[in-house]
């Protein structure tokens, strides 16, 4: 009970401080006005529609990234020649922030969903790839040897030994990738919204609140929604990890 109270001290202080700080200006958002705005936005469905648009793009881009990165990661992790020859490309492109290629992507795919999905796919690709490679490479060699001595064929070995052994690491990569993808979609929609008209999604909503309607309460509601979704995505994948790989204690 005392601990519970202790844990609430700082959040309460932050809220009170925010309320006091903001009371100087009529425009500045306050906890009370943000709650009002949140209720209004939930009621007219704008917030959920924006989140749905963004999440749809995230899942599309994420699915593309996973479908390419996991097979590629398995190939690179299990075949040294493939890894050695492709690693330079990975090491060259990995440090390029997804947002940096946004202008190019807009040039190629326009400023609609296509560009946003491409950015998400690019952002999620590398964490999934790198964790898949390291998962495959860190498989206990004696497990593969055990499968060999039991006479398993190569494809069976891959399916029943390599894949399950690397699965925890692949799922960790997917969790990290999904988190990065969600950040990337906000940035992409924000930047697209800022520079070239409408694209929809929660990120663009935030920019509209800033630039056109100057509704700071709505903006803060969007920020909180972004945080809640990020938290929920992370928890969902942690849960998926615990369910699908009960033997692993990652």
């Amino acid at each position: 009970m005392k601990r519970m109270a202790l844990r609430l001290v700082v959040p309460v202080l932050l809220l009170v401080g925010w309320q006091l700080l903001a009371s100087g200006s009529a425009q500045a958002p306050r906890p009370s006005t943000v709650v009002e705005a949140a209720i209004a936005m939930l009621r007219d469905g704008d917030l959920l529609a924006g989140l749905a648009t963004s999440l749809g793009r995230v899942f599309a881009g994420f699915a593309i990234a996973a479908c390419v990165a996991i097979p590629l990661g398995i190939a690179m992790g299990s075949m040294p020649t493939v890894e050695r020859n492709l690693d330079p490309l990975v090491e060259t492109f990995r440090p390029i922030a997804a947002l940096a290629i946004l202008p190019l992507v807009i040039l190629w795919l326009g400023s609609g969903s296509g560009a946003a999905i491409a950015i998400v796919a690019y952002a999620a690709f590398f964490p999934i790839l790198i964790n898949t490679i390291s998962g495959v490479k860190r498989i206990e060699p004696s497990l593969m040897r055990a499968a060999l001595t039991m006479g398993l064929k190569p494809l069976t070995r891959m399916r029943v030994v390599l894949l399950p052994a690397a699965l925890p690491s692949i799922l960790v990569g997917m969790r990290i990738g999904l988190g990065i993808a969600w950040t990337a979609i906000i940035a992409a929609e924000l930047a697209v919204g800022a520079k070239s008209g409408s694209s929809g999604g929660i990120g663009q909503m935030m920019f509209v609140f800033y630039a056109y309607s100057i509704d700071l309460n709505g903006m803060v509601v969007c920020m909180i929604a972004v945080g809640i979704v990020a938290f929920a995505l992370d928890r969902a994948l942690r849960w998926a990890l615990a369910i699908t790989v009960p033997w692993s204690r990652l």
Partner: peptide, 18 residues
């Protein structure tokens, strides 16, 4: 390797997911 020769490894090499 061949299935007519079974091996028991020092670290047992049990599949942790099974």
């Amino acid at each position: 390797p061949g299935a007519e020769r079974g091996v028991m490894f020092q670290d047992y090499a049990l599949f942790p997911w099974r």
